[in-house]
Amino acid sequence: MEEHPYLFLAVLAGTALVFCLTPLLIARAWAAVFNAAKPGEVKQQVYECGVEAKGDSWVRFHVGYYRYAIVFLVLDVEALFLLPFAVAFGGLSWGASVVILLFLLLAVEGLVWAWKRGALEWA
């Protein structure tokens, strides 16, 4: 009988599933036999630093936070581009250097613009 070429995928998936589910099932069985769950009001509180929890864990963030986050994201991605630039810096042609500097300048200009608009002011 010929083996199906993708059989190994099914075997791997099955193994992965068993690997995850077995400990969970053991834990469930263990709890049922020996160790009863003891949920409680304080135990289920959303906040966990010792101070009494107030309100819900689903809270709205101020819209300013998203502006802040987007500026961060843009500069974060920019840093990603900078790494290969720094590695290849010695062997770069003039043209490439000018292009990356232009890119940097654009990003910095964006930052300055956002800064001036007050996007980095909290609240």
Binding site: N35, K38, G40, V42, K43, E48, C49, G50, V51
Partner: peptide, 14 residues
């Protein structure tokens, strides 16, 4: 003290 007791309460058994 209330914070310490609350933290203890929030720990899972055992």
């Amino acid at each position: 003290a209330p914070m310490v007791v609350r933290l203890y309460n929030q720990m899972p058994e055992p």
